[in-house]
Design a protein around this nucleic acid. Structure first.
Lengths: 159, 159
DNA sequence: TATTGTTATACTCTATAACTATA
DNA sequence: TATAGTTATAGAGTATAACAATA
């Protein structure tokens, strides 16, 4: 019988494995795995998002993203300007150097992406993404657990 | 078409969602999500593992685990003794307080586990665990990517 | 009044390298 | 020689709360 704990453990193992491999691949370029995600989000997102929107798309936090941006701005990867219509907001964009770096990072990460696809049969990648997306949505901050969802396992049951 | 990047993004979203929900649930007990994993690993693992084995099972690192253990020992959750037959090694065990705390944490985390299972049809949980396990194994530190696994995507292809 | 972002702050996790002690 | 763990050290991500400026 598969339990919620089983899902949690293997989800953790897969994510941390991905994270470590990515760190190792990107480190020679002076970029972390999380910073890569930020660059990728900017690339896919039209290159000029507000910090808040950036945080949301990265499954991160405005305060965390700000700390990352300060580091990355110092390294010339991104630049921030005040939003054209909303003077409170700031838009974040890749610099030319940031775009170049991202292209190199994307290549450096290719073996990792290939490795994940390699162990999945045709169709399984789609299934995995579909199921993970459902779990991710269920755990999203905006969602609140349903009222009747309290079951009564005891600690000894699952292990 | 599902890409390796798609898997990475949704894997990240699911894991971080799980991690945040867990932090929120466990914080009132003064325990982090990662510390919960450590306690769970000890509970499931016979209650007396070496630090190295503990790190391996947690998908973590001996040095990281040591830092965590120092904190948790100070809080009376775990205790370490020298290994009975190998004087280099130290065994880690839950204290009575650690066991009590873990039982409370396990209950506190039940809604999260239920929430994940709730959005999956019968059989899908098994599928998810099976596919994730395969990906996790492929990304494990011990595994090295196959030699012929270099494809030639360019950055613009996938987004 | 609500929202965007900044600031200050603190803590945990992560990881490398050099080291000691033991197998 | 190899292994288990420690130490020192550094950095990154995470997040909260109080605050300013703007919508």
């Amino acid at each position: 019988m598969t339990t919620g704990h089983d899902i949690a453990i293997v989800l953790r193992a897969a994510y941390l494995g991905l994270h470590r491999r990515s760190e190792a691949r990107f480190a020679p370029h002076g970029v972390t795995a999380d910073q890569f995600i930020l660059l990728a989000t900017l690339t896919c997102g039209g290159h000029a998002l507000t910090q808040r929107e950036l945080a949301r798309r990265m499954s991160s936090d405005p305060s965390t993203v700000r700390a990352m941006l300060v580091l990355m701005e110092r390294r010339g990867l991104v630049e921030r300007e005040t939003h054209p219509t909303d003077a409170r907001a700031r838009t974040v964009a890749l610099t030319a150097n940031g775009e170049r770096t991202f292209r190199r990072l994307w290549e450096a990460g290719e073996p990792i992406r290939a490795r994940m696809l390699e162990v999945l049969q045709p169709g399984e990648a789609e299934t995995l993404v579909r199921l993970l997306a459902r779990v991710a949505a269920a755990l999203d901050a905006k969602c609140v657990p349903a009222a009747g969802s309290i079951s009564s396992h005891s600690p000894g049951d699952e292990p």
